[in-house]
Design a binder for these strands. Structure first.
Lengths: 204, 204
DNA sequence: GTAGCCTGAATGAACAATCATTCGGTCCGT
DNA sequence: ACGGACCGAATGATTGTTCATTCAGGCTAC
């Protein structure tokens, strides 16, 4: 039986590392456990990654890029900030359903210990584009005033808060609930003092 | 002076553990580092804590109780949900300014690895009382409908998101900014479709 | 076709460093 | 002079990483 699978050993290691890092955190995971979970020998990991630190950085960037890729699928500018926010939120919900471990790894852990400059730069670039979305909306009057980074933190923070509540069993979180809450969270961005309603774009 | 020096060695260990756990995480902190940072010998820690795990649990509960104590200072029911939310939010801001490490330790790390049943029960009790606040507001029509735990997660998540943004240097977060954003976050709880304004209590 | 070589991925025992924890001994308040 | 707080070197387990070795399969020479 011809076994396909040339260099997806690297992918197996990354997948095992994601599962373990997400569950118990970088510092509590031994390389030998990652190797065992990936079905390879301990030394094999070092064929693909120079060190545990580099493995963690590769994983971090892979997850960040996957999330960023999902978000960049939204058409840049179309029907205004309200509609664009709707698409962004839907992307988040989709990603949370498709790759929950990646999101939880990114948002439920502190990465300072191992993050290198390249990873930090990637993270900063993504944050900057999120802040830019808010700035555009502010210029057109569709988004309230205030530090764009603060508004981004509010919105993304509430999304992560929902996921964490689901993760810790405090709340049953599914795509339906998240979709329902979209307009509630939009209230964080909408200019105050006037009612805001459903997004422009209809259903699929 | 009287009997100081007795059990504030325990406090010194807890303080050192908080600082280190918060900065790099449980798994990346050696007991010897905690001891050195607290100014005691390695073995001394075991006079006060049976193990590293128990030390972490004691610290976790201390932080949770400090936060809960701050929040319980708000008078239970006075001028309605809007005013009570204002006091809760102010408590959060106060606590974040007074004990930033405690809040960061609680909210920026995954504690599953070491949390025991008592710690989990304490956490659940605090969450339940937060959900109850929302339920009361829903009954009186001052808070929008929806799963109370979800609304709590949205509000607390956005608060934590702000702190994290400040912590990671994406944003300069001070008490003034947090206070400014109070009414924005209240928008997550206020019933939709009508404008909501400033809290009852005046002041500066 | 096939024997023989060659490359480099894969292995897992071995290694030094570090870990959490222990314990015999010192010190001090009473 | 007694008991417990305190120390810090000792202990054995575990850590991240290395390296001599194995082995599969593609290449060349004939």
């Amino acid at each position: 039986m011809g076994d396909d699978g040339r260099l997806d050993r690297r992918a197996a290691v990354l997948a095992a590392a994601l599962e373990l890092f997400e569950r118990v955190g970088y510092g509590n995971v031994a390389m030998s456990k990652i190797a065992a979970s990936a079905g390879v020998a301990a030394g094999t990991i070092y064929t693909y990654f120079r060190s545990k630190e580099e493995l963690a950085n590769a994983l971090y960037r892979e997850c960040k890029l996957a999330l960023a890729g999902e978000l960049l699928d939204v058409a840049p500018d179309d029907g205004g900030a309200r509609a664009e926010f709707g698409r962004v939120w839907r992307s988040l919900v989709t990603f949370a359903a498709a790759q929950p471990a990646a999101l939880s790894f990114l948002e439920n852990h502190r990465h300072d210990v191992y993050l290198d400059d390249e990873s930090k730069a990637l993270s900063a670039a993504i944050d900057a584009s999120a802040a830019d979305f808010v700035r555009r909306g502010q210029r057109s009057g569709e988004i309230r005033s205030g530090p764009p980074e603060a508004l981004v933190a509010l919105v993304f923070g509430s999304f992560v808060g929902l996921l964490r509540a689901g993760h810790e069993g405090r709340l049953s979180v599914d795509s339906a609930l998240l979709t329902e809450l979209e307009s509630t969270v939009w209230g964080l961005l909408a200019p105050p003092g006037r009612p805001h309603d459903t997004p422009a774009g209809g259903g699929t």
